[in-house]
């Protein structure tokens, strides 16, 4: 344990190593650390921003969902209304058509009835004429008694 030039050697080595560290080790390390710090800070800020945007988007999505629901409701009610209208229209159409058909049928029936009446009337006239002929034993001139016969037929 003697003090000797080792002391000076160690001091020189110390100075050299400190200088080396200050010049070549510390600055790049600190630079990397600072840059990373900045990157992380930026990343965190971006994440926060993203979060906020996400929340906004969710809000917007919720709003548009509500809106869409409302619209759908509206459309449905309108459609229901329209359907009811259509049904009503159809009912009305059907009713008028039915009435029209009934009227036509009745008309036809009336015509048929009239025709049958006319025929019957004609037959009754001819039967009546034949009966009258028999009763009078004489020919009834159709032309001379036409007025009489027509009156008769109208009465039947």
């Amino acid at each position: 344990m003697n003090f000797n030039a080792t002391l000076i050697g160690q001091m020189i080595a110390f100075v050299v190593f400190v200088w080396f560290c200050m010049k070549y080790v510390w600055p790049p390390m600190m630079k990397a650390l600072d840059e990373r710090k900045k990157t992380i800070a930026d990343g965190l800020a971006a994440a926060e921003r993203g979060q906020r945007e996400h929340e906004l988007a969710e809000e917007r999505a919720r709003e548009s969902l509500v809106e869409a629901k409302q619209q759908a409701q509206e459309i449905i009610s309108r459609a229901e209304k329209r359907a009811a209208e259509i049904v009503e229209e159809a009912k009305a159409d059907a009713r008028t058509e039915g009435e029209r058909m009934i009227a036509a049928a009745r008309n036809e029936l009336d015509q048929e009835l009239n025709r049958v009446k006319e025929e019957l009337r004609g037959q009754v006239v001819s039967i009546a004429v034949a009966g009258a002929e028999k009763v009078l034993e004489r020919e009834v001139n159709e032309q001379t008694h036409n007025e009489l016969l027509t009156k008769l037929a109208a009465q039947i």
């Binding site: 080595a13 190593f17 080396f20 560290c21 070549y24 080790v25 510390w26 600055p27 790049p28 390390m29 630079k31 990397a32 840059e35 990373r36 900045k38 990157t39």
Partner: peptide
């Protein structure tokens, strides 16, 4: 000292923010 600064110089040279 050389070992110490060899290691740290190597790390410092390759230091990046990634």
């Amino acid at each position: 000292g050389f070992i110490l600064f060899y290691i740290f110089r190597k790390a410092a040279k390759n230091a990046h923010a990634g």
